[in-house]
């Protein structure tokens, strides 16, 4: 079956008709944006915004209901010593861990995201992926993080990937769909741009860089390509899509670089937890330490924050 895009082109022509990415220019632009100095009140605002954007994630084989519930409790009150510290955006877990997390998060306003569709490899038959998705939604997840089939994408079977995303989106029902491109396995920035457009055309609510399970995770240049893609997509179709870099973002400094990049690329509409998320686990503690440094006036230490 040939998928026809809103522009009337077939998918392959549209994706290959996207302008190529200037690798050197992109990387130097991302590096230049990373040198901005954000201090004092602006820094405090950036830290609070970054905390509100965190998808607090645990995706380990060793996850237990108790551990997930502890993490969910942390999501609600990241800094127990300071009530002015905002909650994070969401908790992100495996489908089997959705029910225990839902118990803690119900009615709190903190979203519950579940990875699905044979995370992290995506190498499973479509009906298994759809069942995985429906189960997670039925268990209480209101956001689904799906992985695309990189194998099919790299083989050039764009229609197949497109239809898969459409089918998962349908299985999601009211739940938001984040599509993980796994940019570390796509090879080139051109592919990242194509995969972004493919996912957005298929109905993704968010495009996400990585699973966090391959060595090359979120980087500034890759996220810059994706921010340009969502900006251009909205200009063309009027629909706004969110961006979620995930994996490898560990420090407040890194997080602030991303915020600067959003401001300079996609625009301030995306400076909101509804449109931008950080998929992270250790980032939150660093944000809390920097926040504590600003409120107390002395450097904070990891001994005073939870291990998770």
């Amino acid at each position: 079956m040939t998928v026809t895009t809103p522009a009337g082109l077939d998918l392959r022509s549209l994706l290959h008709g996207l302008p190529g990415v200037d690798k050197v220019g992109l990387e130097s632009r991302a590096a230049a944006l990373g040198t901005r100095s954000v201090k004092t009140t602006a820094k405090a605002a950036a830290i609070d915004l970054a905390i509100r954007m965190v998808d607090l994630t645990t995706l380990e084989g060793a996850d237990t209901p108790g551990k997930v519930q502890a993490l969910a409790a942390k999501a609600l009150r990241p800094d127990p010593a300071d009530a002015s510290c905002p909650p994070v955006a969401a908790v992100c877990v495996y489908p089997a861990m959705v029910p225990p997390a839902a118990e803690v998060l119900a009615g709190s306003g903190v979203h519950l995201a579940s990875v699905a569709t044979a995370f992290p490899s995506g190498q499973a038959p479509l009906d298994v992926k759809l069942a995985d998705t429906r189960d997670a939604v039925a268990a209480g997840a209101d956001e689904i993080d799906m992985v695309i089939s990189r194998g099919e994408f790299l083989a050039g079977h764009y229609d197949k990937v497109f239809e898969e995303i459409v089918a998962v989106k349908e299985a999601c029902g009211a739940a938001h769909l984040k599509v993980i491109l796994e940019t570390g396995e796509l090879g080139t920035y051109d592919n990242v741009r194509r995969a972004s457009w493919l996912a957005m055309l298929a109905g993704a609510d968010f495009i996400k860089t990585s699973t966090g399970k391959v060595p090359l995770a979120a980087t500034l240049p890759v996220t810059l390509v994706m921010l340009e893609a969502v900006r251009d997509f909205r200009a063309k179709t009027g629909r706004q899509v969110g961006v979620k870099p995930a994996g490898g973002i560990r420090t407040t400094k890194d997080a602030v670089k991303y915020l600067v990049m959003i401001h300079e690329t996609a625009g301030d509409d995306w400076l909101d937890p509804d449109w931008f998320r950080f998929g992270a686990s250790s980032l939150l503690n660093d944000l809390l330490m920097q926040r504590t440094k600003l409120t107390t006036g002395h450097y904070a230490g990891p001994d005073y924050f939870t291990l998770d």
Binding site: G297, H298, Y299, G301, P302, D303, Y304
Partner: peptide, 9 residues
């Protein structure tokens, strides 16, 4: 003073 107040020292 910064080292004296540092929580990780």
């Amino acid at each position: 003073p910064w080292l004296a107040s540092h929580d990780d020292v």
